[in-house]
Nucleic acid binder design. Structure first.
Lengths: 407, 407
DNA sequence: ACTCAATTTGTGAAATTACACAAAACGTTC
DNA sequence: GAACGTTTTGTGTAATTTCACAAATTGAGT
């Protein structure tokens, strides 16, 4: 290049940011591929709320990232090596700015942002920004290598936790500190099951998504065949279960929305404080997935082990009813009647029980008149010799219906 | 004795009954200790409905026996060797009569009844009746010996059935025929648990009671330590489960009422047709007893294996929750709250669930205002983070409450 | 004794449910 | 297609439940 202002070497990214800032006369921010702040210029104090928030939190706020995805800015940056202009988005305090992605071969390593506070960058300056991006490349590669090495250590540690390879809690805590993670005082393990083996690209997408979600904090993550396993800190979260649920649904939604990755099934463990229980948590999360495999419809909305309810017991119940082979007398009668008379008493009963014995709701779901349902219930209790006011009987029917479904 | 009209030997009891009838000028009936008809006089055709029913059915009708117990007649006969006069009881078609018991040492072998249709027996005739009783003694002892031998065969056969010692159904049916019992087309096994080891007297009382109950038919019975085991035919009974339930309660009530034997626990199996399933039935009946031992309060009214409901699964559930040691999060929260604030939320929840979520009934049992209960339920769902409209959650709580109870 | 929050009880209106009855629809059998 | 029993739906009323709100009670802490 004939006129590259950034040929000179530089020691730190901060120094470099200031240099670019001086050339372009606007504040500069450099981020990694996961939108973590790497450096920002300080010689210019004009700025906007989004930049302040980024600098304070050492990362781009989640809502800003969301907005940039929605506006198509990030997809463009990931597709093109040219600078892209972003219009003001007032709601999130984002002023006009220009961004460019930093590339190594076919991979994006990070981004440079230039705020257009008072002036708009011309074509030449845009070009200059592109050159700046090229100049940071090597620095970012170094950083990435360092990070990869650390990442490997994380992986190894996480698998040790998941398999209870570390015996004492002290040992675990030491290891946490060694990796510069503060051990969580309460945590959970989540597992996401994908519909295909996860490739390198998927891994990157996942890592990206996990890094940009700020709460809850994903301390460790790893991928095993079709499963993504997360170790989640719940420190300082008031309603951990709510949060976990929201997170699980959010993650799945974003994976689909941003990367078109579909049909992910999620499961997470109870909340524990004892770091020796990571393996147990892992098992719990996988139990949730296993229940969802067996009962796709009924367990669709259940993600947490806590919420499994009766399905916590489903395995032993299946086993027991298999060995004893005791069909439920009432169900047998109803099934016989259904077959003979072309009726749907069994289904009716199940819907009724699913809706907590609420005639109105059940009738709605069945698309029949309330009185019809009442009539059927009367027949059901006659034919099946069931007392629908007896919780023991109802619960047994509920369980046996679910069990039957599995066979 | 100076003047015994019955010194002469006689061939059959029938002949003897006629002889006595002629001496006393009134119809005579002879029964064994279990009120089965042994013989009756025919030379006199004056009679009353109770006697006709006895002769037709070859046994004294149950309601007549009941009445005689209530009037104190049978207890007196079992206590005294003297003839006893019975006043007319119109409701059961019983005319005036005199009865005397037949003794061998301290044991009653049977009874002789003399109807006072037109005349009343004088003292001399009463004495004569007593002599007649003495004269039948030897004949009855013979009968009893024969019966005892048969009884032993029954016992052996029953234990073979209970332990699945006979392999093919054909074998079983042949054995039934050999013992002159017609194999039932449907049956059940019932077990009664007594609070003490059963002695010879108890056995007799039990045998007596079983013989006098006409429906359902007890084909076989045996005693094992503190347990009475029955093999019950359900042929020709429309609502077998109802009948069994009624029978179990009746048996316990009568044992107490007549013999003062208390705190009997009853359990019976499902109804089966396959005679190869006697052992399974026996196990089922014992399972009921075992549940009642573990859950005396909740299973008090449950006698049938069919009605066990969730308690059918209780063993595996206990085991599962033991190995996993997963306390229910909601219950834990509620227990903590109860302890801290001196409240009864857990109990409230249980009563509520026991009453099928019926606020009114539950409030009644708890002796609080309906609104109080509603308030508590609201607190319960807040504190325990429970959705009381979700059947899965409710069922889980129900199960976990019962499980907790067991610990 | 006072304060405070939590709990209990009372009241009444609105919503929901239970139930009886009649009419209509449906499917089967002859 | 007529006759039959079963099922579905509509209507109306009585009973019950739900819910909000106010008042009274409790009990622990100061």
């Amino acid at each position: 290049m004939k006129n590259d202002p950034f040929r000179a070497s530089f020691d730190s990214l901060e120094e470099f940011a200031d240099m670019v800032s001086e050339v372009l006369h606007c504040p500069i921010t450099i981020e990694d591929a996961n939108h973590r702040l790497l450096a920002y210029s300080t010689h210019d104090d004009r700025t906007d709320p989004a930049r302040i928030a980024t600098i304070i939190g050492r990362r781009v706020p989640e809502k800003v990232i969301n907005s940039l995805w929605k506006e198509g800015v990030i997809p463009s940056l990931l597709n093109s090596r040219d600078p892209i202009r972003v219009k003001t988005v007032d709601e999130i305090g984002l002023g006009n700015r220009v961004a460019v992605s930093i590339w190594k071969n076919d991979e994006v390593l990070g981004f440079i942002w230039a705020l257009e506070i008072e002036k708009t960058l011309g074509e030449e300056e845009m070009n200059c920004l592109k050159q700046a991006a090229d100049a940071t490349k090597n620095k970012l590669i170094q950083l990435q290598n360092r990070k990869n090495k650390k990442e490997e250590q994380f992986q190894e540690f996480f698998w040790q936790l998941l398999t209870s390879h570390l015996s004492t809690n002290e040992e675990i805590i030491n290891k946490f500190h060694a990796l510069q993670i503060s051990p969580p005082s309460s945590f959970a393990v989540a597992v996401f099951q994908f519909s295909k083996e996860l490739g390198r690209d998927d891994e990157k997408h996942i890592a990206y998504l996990l890094k940009t979600i700020q709460m809850p904090k994903i301390l460790l993550h790893t991928i095993d065949h079709q499963q993504l396993v997360l170790f989640i800190s719940l420190d300082g979260i008031q309603k951990p279960v709510n949060k976990l649920n929201a997170f699980c649904e959010l993650f799945v939604a974003k994976m689909k929305e941003r990367f078109g990755i579909d049909s992910i099934v999620q499961g997470y463990s109870s909340v524990y404080s004892d770091l020796g229980k990571v393996e147990k948590s892992y098992k719990e999360a996988r139990t949730v997935l296993s229940v969802k495999r067996k009962f796709p419809r009924e367990a669709k909305e259940i993600h947490g082990y806590q919420s499994l309810g009766i399905y916590k017991y489903i395995d032993v119940l299946i086993e027991k009813s298999g060995t004893d082979q005791n069909e439920n007398y009432s169900l047998k009668k109803l099934q016989e009647y259904d077959k003979k008379n072309n009726t749907d008493l069994v289904e009716t009963l199940e819907v009724f029980l699913n809706h907590d014995s609420n005639v109105h709701e059940a009738a709605n779901q069945l698309n029949v008149h309330t009185n019809t349902l009442n009539y059927r219930l009367k027949r059901i209790s006659e034919i099946g010799e069931i007392n629908l006011k007896d919780p023991n009987q109802k619960i047994t029917l509920y369980l046996d219906l679910k069990l039957e479904k599995f066979k």
